[in-house]
């Protein structure tokens, strides 16, 4: 036991190193806390009991999706007998108004990235970007009218001025002009 100091010292260093993350987090006050989601104030009950929603909302949403898209059934009979329209953005988001404060908080914590929002639109996102919506109207009309067959064809009677403005000058080879040949 001549190496007692060395062994005990080594053990202490080993324990300190191995438990370092615990001490570090305690010191920094950033211990893993469950996410705090903002619950809606307008409604008391969800479409299913809280426990079920917490663990299986994804299953419910997938069932909703298949019912609406493939069975064209849009009404959901909830556990308490109430009827709901099966819609993520119109029913869920009506109460859970903030994706950032509700969905994202838990998903970020759990490290999951649901792809719902690749297509479905967070209503808040639209409100934020709707600042200059009315100014878009003109360019919108322009883009729509660009879709019409090319005005290079002289027989078109009248074209809205907006459609002509953005078009390149000179005869333009539309995809159909070559196909129609000399007809």
């Amino acid at each position: 036991m001549r190496d007692r100091e060395l062994i005990i010292g080594g053990l202490v260093v080993f324990l300190a190193v191995i438990t370092f993350p615990v001490w570090y987090n305690l010191a920094a006050g950033s211990t893993a806390k469950p996410p705090e989601v903002k619950l809606p104030t307008t409604e008391k009950t969800c479409v299913a009991p809280t426990e079920y929603m917490r663990t299986s909302h994804m299953d419910l949403l997938i069932t909703w999706r298949d019912e609406v898209v493939r069975q064209h059934n849009r009404t959901f009979k909830a556990f308490d007998g109430k009827s709901y329209t099966m819609s993520l953005t119109q029913t869920c988001m009506k109460c859970h108004t903030s994706k950032a404060d509700f969905c994202d908080r838990c998903h970020d914590y759990a490290g999951v990235k649901p792809y719902c929002w690749d297509c479905h639109i967070d209503p808040k996102l639209v409100q934020r970007s709707a600042g200059g919506a009315s100014t878009d109207e003109r360019s919108w009309a322009l883009r729509v009218s660009r879709r019409l067959p090319s005005p290079a064809t002289p027989r078109w009677r009248s074209w809205p001025a907006a459609a002509r403005q953005g078009e390149p000058q000179g005869p333009r080879a539309g995809p159909w002009s070559s196909m129609r040949g000399s007809a």
């Binding site: 297509c119 639109i121 967070d122 970007s129």
Partner: peptide, 10 residues
């Protein structure tokens, strides 16, 4: 533009 929140995009 403008986005319609009631219908999904692709």
């Amino acid at each position: 533009k403008p986005l319609n929140p009631d219908f999904p995009t692709r």
